[in-house]
């Protein structure tokens, strides 16, 4: 079986936060969604603004797994990093360690994170966040396909003067790939 992955396209995110709410609905979370959409804004010679949906990227070499004193985090052969809430003691060391803000502190004091909706994958369904995203800023599929798709999107963005790059495809490999803007828009007008 070829490897599956998820592509998160920051250049397309419209901050509707549907993914974030779908995550809570699917995983029966009262609060503290495993995806949080954060706004970013910076001023160079013009304004750059984008939204960054933050969740676990399911790293090939997860730092959270390395720092967890209880062995509550395991990585499976399918590339998914799974957190065992029964073993978790809520020390939250992983929260600080994760560079992607992927670990969330839940209302019960323990830690929670994206499970990639592995229970849905088992029945051949895509993760809840992917199924709702109205602008295909989150897509699920075979890893090779997604890397090709990301390449096409980067080319397309470049043709409109927007430089973007793909995170997680080679070194620092992750199962959740991120297509991020690394430049500004050329059409911003200031009155």
């Amino acid at each position: 079986m070829s490897q599956f992955a998820m592509l998160v396209d920051v250049s397309r995110c419209i901050a509707c936060k549907s993914c974030s709410v779908a995550c809570m609905q699917e995983n029966c979370l009262h609060s503290s969604s495993w995806i949080r959409v954060r706004g970013r804004e910076l001023l160079t010679d013009h304004l750059i603004k984008y939204y960054n949906p933050q969740s676990c990227r399911h790293c090939a070499d997860p730092i959270c797994l390395a720092v967890c004193p209880m062995g509550a985090i395991q990585r499976g052969n399918d590339g998914l990093v799974i957190h065992d809430i029964e073993r978790c003691i809520g020390c939250q060391v992983c929260v600080d360690a994760c560079p992607y803000s992927g670990m969330k502190i839940m209302t019960n004091g323990k830690v929670g994170k994206c499970s990639f909706c592995s229970h849905l994958l088992e029945i051949n369904k895509e993760p809840a966040c992917v199924s709702v995203c109205p602008v295909e800023a989150r897509i699920f599929g075979e890893r090779e396909f997604l890397i090709r798709e990301a390449g096409l999107r980067i080319k397309n963005l470049l043709s409109r003067g927007i430089k973007a790059h793909l995170e997680g495809a080679d070194k620092e490999s992750t199962t959740v790939l991120y297509l991020s803007n690394n430049t500004s828009r050329s059409n911003w007008l200031v009155p």
Partner: peptide
């Protein structure tokens, strides 16, 4: 729970957060 209806030609299964909320 509320999901998007994939058979609806106008939203094709996609929804915003509001109907879930």
């Amino acid at each position: 729970a509320v999901f998007g209806d994939r058979d609806n030609p106008y939203n094709k299964g996609k929804i915003c957060a509001k109907p879930m909320e």
